[in-house]
């Protein structure tokens, strides 16, 4: 159990899919316009990731090595379609806001990276925790980025006005460049903190 918790925490912080592994950038940059969008995207990806990791892990002894990538992609694409249909049925607003990036979960590198790098080598329970950890790490980052961009861009968080009317809205933050700047600066801060921690452990 202890090992599984370790895997979970690794996924969320020390091996964060976006900040450390640098995968899944397209979805991160595109859907972090607001907290709601970011969390919606993060949780959809988490659902696909957990299910795909479990199935890949269960099938890992039956999938021939040479055709493993197409097999992983079919598993991921199936779960993506399921999540897409569920969102269309129950959360149409989120589905419209995320638009093309829901079908594009298939080509989110996080999924293939975890299937290839973890689920195809480890047991079902560990793969479940790995999927959950990476998914939550991704969701947390999207939520933080969404909060920063929403706050600076329109003075709201979760749609609630926090700043007075006179707050100078930085429109740039909710447009494309804001996404690049926010992620670049967050990544530098994270790198600095993690690197600083690594050094103090060595000393």
């Amino acid at each position: 159990m202890n090992k599984n918790i370790r895997v979970l925490i690794d996924g969320i912080i020390f091996n964060n899919p976006v900040l450390i592994q640098v995968v899944g950038m397209c979805a991160t940059l595109a859907t972090s316009v607001s907290v709601i969008n970011g969390v919606g995207m993060g949780l959809s990806t988490t659902a696909v990731l957990v299910c795909a990791n479990i199935v890949v892990s269960m099938l890992r002894k039956f999938i021939p090595d040479t055709v493993r990538i197409p097999c992983f992609i079919v598993v991921i694409a199936s779960f993506t379609t399921i999540v897409q249909l569920l969102l269309q049925a129950y959360l149409p607003a989120i589905n419209d806001a995320l638009g093309i990036f829901i079908p594009l979960i298939v080509v989110n590198c996080i999924l293939l990276a975890r299937a290839e790098g973890f689920a195809s080598k480890n047991g079902v329970v560990a793969s479940f925790f790995d999927g959950l950890g990476n998914g939550l790490g991704f969701t947390a980052l999207l939520a933080v980025m969404g909060a920063i961009r929403e706050f600076l861009g329109s003075g709201t968080v979760l749609g609630m006005a926090i700043m007075p009317e006179a707050f100078p809205e930085t429109l740039l933050m909710v447009m494309a460049p804001g996404a690049f700047f926010t992620l670049g600066i967050l990544m530098a801060i994270f790198k600095h903190l993690i690197a600083g921690k690594g050094q103090s452990e060595e000393e």
Partner: peptide, 14 residues
Amino acid sequence: KAFEGFPLALIGAG
């Protein structure tokens, strides 16, 4: 140091 690699690339892309 903290900006080496991806962070600066992202800001450049921005």
